[in-house]
């Protein structure tokens, strides 16, 4: 009952995944991590078939989703894009109700069941009292909760989120992450792209590490987030130690200013390049 990706080669003109094969297990939170441009969002989009997987295959709960229509895919898997568009003059309730689209006809007539799902979603994200407010008037954190509620109303068993915490204040980041945990408790399979490795380690059951369009490794946060991985994938020297609250790994980069070796190596390199540029421009 997992999401199984095989030989995914999705991408754009300038960037393609290198035949990524990975499985995201059912009933868990899987976080995709890696540096910018490593292909984690591309992989996520392929899983919901927003992108063509090339010669690869996407199976969700054993079903090849290339064989089924968009509407049916939308009843199985939902995806919240990284920068959701806020249409002008739309109420919170209207927005959340759009989540019911895959269950409705072309005209979007709502049934009593649809209304119930929308109410439940609004309750879950605690936006019930703001339901008549225009989405555009909400704070960043409230807006993101409204979009999560839209996905909740969509009621797909597999829920994907592309950097749902980006550009939110820290309080709201944890609010959204707690919501993902609540979704998992409700029996959903959650796959989320996260920028923050520590948050990913804290909330996810499994991490999938990507680099340069390739799958690197998958496993429990404590096994995956190591000093070696942080150096190899993110290019920083750091100490990795368990969070005193949760036991999940925290990353403390070495302070370059106080560390002799690093200070000598890095700024020296920078200065060297700067001088070189000046020299070139003079000639």
């Amino acid at each position: 009952m997992s999401i199984r990706l095989t030989d995914i080669r999705a991408g754009y003109d300038a960037f393609r995944l290198n035949d990524v094969s990975v499985e995201m297990r059912a009933g868990m939170i899987t976080a995709l991590i890696g540096p910018n441009g490593c292909g984690k969002s591309t992989l996520l989009k392929s899983a919901a078939r927003h992108l063509d997987p090339g010669p690869g295959r996407v199976e969700i709960a054993g079903q090849d989703i290339a064989r089924i229509g968009r509407r049916r895919i939308a009843r199985i898997v939902s995806l919240l894009p990284q920068h959701p568009v806020v249409p002008p003059a739309i109420s919170v309730r209207d927005l959340v109700a759009y989540g019911r689209a895959p269950h409705q006809n072309l005209f979007g007539f709502r049934s009593a069941a649809d209304d119930r799902k929308v109410d439940e979603a609004l309750d879950l994200v605690e936006l019930d009292i703001l339901r008549e407010r225009p989405v555009a008037s909400l704070s960043g954190g409230q807006r993101q909760r409204a979009f999560v509620a839209m996905c909740v109303a969509q009621d797909a068993p597999y829920m994907l989120f592309d950097e749902p915490t980006s550009s939110l204040d820290i309080k709201y980041q944890y609010e959204v992450l707690d919501l993902l945990r609540a979704l998992k408790s409700a029996g959903k399979t959650v796959v989320v792209v996260l920028h923050d490795i520590e948050q990913a380690a804290r909330y996810a059951d499994e991490l999938v590490v990507m680099k340069d369009g390739s799958f690197l490794r998958r496993g429990a946060p404590a096994d995956v987030v190591t000093r070696e991985m942080v150096r190899e994938v993110f290019g920083i020297e750091a100490k990795v130690f368990p969070d005193p609250n949760t036991g999940t790994p925290l990353i403390s980069p070495r302070d370059r200013m106080s560390d002799g070796a690093a200070t000598a190596a890095r700024p020296g390199c920078e200065t060297g390049r700067a001088t070189e540029t000046v020299a070139t421009s003079k000639t």
């Binding site: 919901a48 968009r70 895919i73 995806l79 919240l80 959701p84 568009v85 249409p87 759009y98 689209a101």
Partner: peptide
């Protein structure tokens, strides 16, 4: 109006 990505996610072609 929700954008192509969100609309696709909601089952639209």
């Amino acid at each position: 109006r929700l954008g192509a990505a969100q609309a696709t996610s909601l089952g639209m072609n």
